[in-house]
Design a binder for these strands. Structure first.
Lengths: 215, 215
DNA sequence: TCGCAAACTTGCGACGGAGGTAAATTTAGC
DNA sequence: GCTAAATTTACCTCCGTCGCAAGTTTGCGA
């Protein structure tokens, strides 16, 4: 009886691990938003969460990891959209749809992160640099997905350029959402504004990439 | 006679300052290339140049500044090309010309930095992140130049998108030159290869931006 | 024309925070 | 209880920043 471990979820150990991680993350975001990212030390976060400093850096190797969550999901989002495109749909069309859906859902991954969060990022050079890196990773993953879709090599100049242009439009719109959020616009208004601007921006790429990577 | 100071250059102080700066910079690049960026400490550089640690960080606030020179020139290059465009020439055409010229001249600012230097950057996450930041600054300056040229606001979505797309093509080609350099291709061959690829890449933007910001 | 003192700049040692290693201690799972 | 993993503790290096001393330029008066 006592040895019947597998049934109740995934063991106490795993549970506590996730709890600790969440505990640290929660205290971190709270302190970051309250005092700013650069102004908050890892020691403070550890003290607030009642754990050792090493435990913090164990779960989150870099300080930025404490602030920016869902990095993997973000980096993979564009590649996933291309991989999941409909029959006969081009990469551009799939990415238009993916963006429109994310905006309609006011997805944090698209840039709807809340005003305080946007302020935290904007005020921290470290975090803006980190965000740039994430956009870059996202572009690389997209290039890989386009290479898979077209049969070309991922370092082919056409693939690279297509991925860069598509990723760039997403990046510009992401920043636009951030800027509007920072300026205090309500999410519903942003959703409306961005929809029109996205059409405009993506339309620029239509002649260049209309049929690129059509399934 | 002895009091005739103004004629010989710009004073003893300025001279020594530049000498010290150059001395530090030279030792830094030598060590970086020899052992890698991350593996070289500021203390080592200071010891090699026979100055105090603080003197190094005084001339070069961040460690990256020791490796990446001509940052201002790089960041301003695209904006300058647009500002100096010919009569009736569009921004796209001006930037095509600027890139072609830089490639023909094998300009370091376009990516012709030498194999060892390219290796140093590629091997260092810090430096690649810094380079991303420079591309970003370059895009911002370009957006400002486009805003000036068209009379629009620099945070206008059209300006932002145009700057991003144009900057992106330059960025992709820059990385391409770096990659080829890293792979050991001689500069003359790269020049030839890149010329064709640049035509291809810029052509993608022709339908979108053919007459944008035409003077 | 000359000297002199105030203001600025350069160089220096010391400190705080991020990130990492190694060993000791606790705690889940068997 | 025993093994293994997680957490803690202590310690270290290195980057980047903060007061302090020394030297140089400049403004002013003689």
């Amino acid at each position: 009886m006592a040895t019947q471990t597998p049934a109740p979820a995934a063991g106490l150990r795993e549970t506590k691990k996730h709890e600790t991680r969440q505990l640290i993350s929660d205290h971190a975001t709270r302190l970051f938003i309250a005092q700013g990212f650069e102004q908050t030390t890892i020691a403070e976060i550890a003290a607030a969460a009642r754990v050792a400093k090493k435990t913090v850096t164990n779960y989150f190797p870099r300080k930025e990891d404490l602030a920016l969550d869902h990095q993997e999901e973000f980096a993979a989002s564009l590649a996933a959209a291309v991989a999941a495109r409909h029959q006969g749909e081009s990469a551009l069309t799939a990415l238009r749809r993916a963006f429109a859906d994310a905006v309609a859902a006011q997805d944090p991954v698209a840039g709807f992160s809340g005003q305080e969060f946007a302020r935290m990022i904007a005020d921290s050079p470290t975090l803006t640099a980190c965000l740039r890196g994430l956009h870059d990773q996202r572009e690389h993953h997209l290039a890989q997905a386009l290479a898979d879709a077209t049969g070309a090599r991922s370092d082919d100049i056409t693939v690279q350029t297509a991925a860069a242009l598509l990723g760039t439009v997403h990046r510009v719109l992401f920043h636009r959402i951030q800027t509007l959020t920072l300026a205090g616009h309500p999410d519903d208004q942003i959703t409306h504004t961005i929809a029109a601007e996205a059409t405009q921006a993506f339309d620029l790429l239509e002649p260049a990439l209309r049929d690129y990577a059509a399934a």
